[in-house]
Simulated scan of single mutants.
Amino acid sequence: MSPRNVTVLDYGSGNIRSAVRALEHAGANVTLSAKPDDVLNADGLVVPGVGAFAAVMQGLKDVDAIRMIGRRVAGGRPVLGICVGLQVLFDEGVEHGVRTPGMAEWPGVVERLAADVVPHMGWNTVAPPEGSALFAGIEDQRFYFVHSYGVQKWDFDVTQPAMRPPQVTWAEHGGPFIAAVENGALSATQFHPEKSGDAGAALLNNWLKTLG
């Protein structure tokens, strides 16, 4: 397979350089950019995210990324969100009593984890569904998490019988929370594959294989 052209969205998020290096190590041709041509025409787009939900949403708005991500999703062009890049794909985030609208690609609210120790920081196992493309061959591996908030309930209403429901991967920290979602061309992980060693590299490789 020839190397895939991947754009890592450049909007000021803190883990951008590590994501670039990890994708290059996985064999992709990587461009760090927020230019429309680069975002819309790449084989795959990666949306990293670190920090507060509201700040990430504002950063995306500042570079017109919400519109561009929406165009890619509507056209079936692959997108991978990482950490807060997963969270903003849900309906809204609630931090310190403040509600911030998300991109509403998936139903759900990002809320503080129901755990005695927060943030959830370190390695954890996940429970992917059967047939997962992202976790093929690495279903029993551990991945690196750093987060205080997550989506702890999933209520996806398939209104059209022909629609294939998303595949949801769960993890546990004080209770279950969503660790990853695969929904056609749109995928995201709550953990950091770029910080997850060999398992993370394998997951990025799996994602690159889905780019065609």
Rank of each mutant, 00 (worst) to 15 (best):
S2Q: 13
S2L: 03
P3N: 10
V6S: 11
V8I: 13
L9W: 01
G12C: 08
S13R: 02
G14P: 07
R17V: 04
R17P: 02
R17G: 13
S18E: 09
V20P: 10
A22H: 07
L23S: 05
L23P: 08
E24Y: 00
E24L: 07
A26L: 03
A26H: 08
N29W: 06
L32M: 10
A34G: 01
L40C: 12
N41S: 15
N41Y: 11
V47R: 04
P48G: 09
P48R: 07
G49W: 00
A54K: 13
A54M: 04
A55M: 06
V56H: 00
G59C: 08
K61A: 15
D62C: 10
M68S: 11
R72F: 04
V73P: 12
P78D: 05
V79S: 08
V84C: 08
L86K: 05
Q87H: 05
Q87D: 03
Q87W: 02
V88N: 03
L89T: 07
L89R: 02
F90L: 02
D91L: 03
E95W: 07
H96A: 15
V98R: 12
E105Y: 12
W106L: 05
W106A: 05
V110W: 08
R112M: 11
L113A: 11
A115R: 06
A115M: 10
D116A: 12
D116G: 11
D116W: 01
V118T: 06
P119A: 13
G122T: 07
T125G: 15
V126F: 00
V126N: 09
V126C: 10
P129I: 00
E130T: 15
G131V: 04
L134H: 13
D140R: 06
Q141H: 14
R142H: 11
R142S: 14
Y144N: 09
Y144Q: 09
V146D: 03
H147K: 11
H147V: 10
W154K: 09
W154Q: 03
D157V: 13
D157T: 09
D157G: 03
V158A: 14
T159P: 00
Q160E: 14
P161Q: 13
M163N: 13
R164D: 15
G175Q: 07
F177E: 01
A179R: 02
E182T: 01
N183R: 12
N183S: 15
G184Y: 01
L186C: 03
L186I: 07
Q190C: 09
F191R: 04
P193S: 12
E194L: 12
E194R: 07
K195H: 12
S196V: 11
D198S: 15
A199S: 11
A199C: 01
L204P: 08
W207E: 12
W207M: 10
G212N: 14
G212F: 00
